[in-house]
Design a protein around this nucleic acid. Structure first.
Lengths: 140, 140
DNA sequence: CAGATAATGAGAGGGCAGTATCATTAGAGC
DNA sequence: GCTCTAATGATACTGCCCTCTCATTATCTG
């Protein structure tokens, strides 16, 4: 996987422990992470990791098609692994984490007004995730 | 409408032409406006209007329940008149304006994973509004 | 009309997300 | 191990959204 001879290689892209740790953060958490969250997770592996490196790595992963941006209301951009298929998100107001949710209600297209061209849609659920819901409702 | 005797009145709330113009901007446009958009619309009536005044007025309107915030991915906060009932939004990628859309697909609640407490949801449609769609597809 | 003061406008300031800089570190190939 | 250089980390910096400050203006009441 060197460089297919040509000059399309902008840089050599070394496999550093930082980059590996950042990528692992996304694959282990399995939910959209903000750069800050990714930093915290990856720092468990690489303590000295700096935020600038996280931004750089994410940028690279996105342009390589490894990550895709997930934009949610209010919050900063998050990113998740590409190739997950169509899905939506649930944002917990307790811990502020974002989770993927499967499925998509029918008739979405019918919402668009006459004359409008619908190209994409996005559904964001809000509430409490399982963890926060437990804590709040004092189960025991 | 003075002040019901007590001390609940923080300030007197004068009816200034600026504040009227800002409120009118929201009622005439009938769609969520960012402070910047509101500024531009209101400046047609009050040319010298400053952005700080718009922020101040919006803040006041929100705390008075006249406006409600509309948070959309990426973009800055927008606001719209309160009391419009449940609805969603369409954001045009051409002009970046946001429109209200009626209706709401069924089964939304079923999307939430087990154990999650769904409290609210939000649907954002993306694409081209009627105006931009026309322009793009070169009608004639 | 006059007085009291809320509101305004312009610009400075604060906070935060993200980027650029640069000396130092550490991958990758030999 | 050694060289080359991409990558890193710390920090300065930019850009943007929004708030604060304060001298001036305009609204409201009597």
């Amino acid at each position: 996987m060197k460089a297919e001879a040509e000059g399309t290689v902008q840089t050599e892209t070394r496999q550093t422990q930082q980059r590996v740790a950042i990528h692992d953060a996304f694959s282990s958490e399995r939910r959209p992470l903000s750069p800050q969250e990714a930093l915290e997770v990856a720092q468990r592996t690489v303590p000295g990791l700096g935020i600038a490196t996280v931004y750089r790595a994410i940028k690279r992963f996105v342009s390589d098609g490894v990550l895709v941006p997930v934009e949610l209301p209010g919050a900063a951009s998050r990113y998740e692994l590409a190739g997950l298929g169509h899905h939506h998100h649930f944002q917990c107001r307790g811990c502020d984490r974002v989770y993927d949710v499967e499925g998509c209600p029918p008739r979405i297209a019918e919402l668009a007004p006459e004359g409008f061209e619908l190209e994409a849609h996005e559904i964001v659920l809000h509430g409490l995730c399982a963890d926060c819901s437990e804590t709040t409702s004092a189960t025991t």
